[in-house]
Amino acid sequence: MLTKIKRENLIIIYKLLNDTLFIGLVFFLLALIGEGLLPGIITFHIGFSKIITVVFFNLAAVYLLANQLGIKADNDQTNKKTAYLLLFIVLLLVFNSLLKANIFFSLFILLVVVLIGIFIYKVIFEEN
């Protein structure tokens, strides 16, 4: 079916899907922060599963279209500033979820999360 659509139109759809993916991820991140601050404020109205499903289908559509159009992901394109910002938010959310626990226990868990994160990153992304 996709072959019947003009390549230019497919590129427009691909670019738009990237925009909707960005919007979906911003919504998801804001929802996570909102839930972290006040549990239930978002999930009472809209479940995370719904947001994740939408983002997942969007991502799948981007992947399929990229294959169809022969677009390859640029591995050097990683935006380090955004990555560090996201990492900082993730650590804040983890720390926030442990706030009721002992402060030293929370810091210890946070340290463990960081170490696990670093090792997973090394295993997946670093070349031999």
Partner: peptide
Amino acid sequence: FDLTKKIELDEKNYKHYRLFQTAVY
């Protein structure tokens, strides 16, 4: 605000994309 700058379109189609993008946002 173009997240996929490297994927280029001709001027006419780029205008269309920008129009749809504004609608999406």
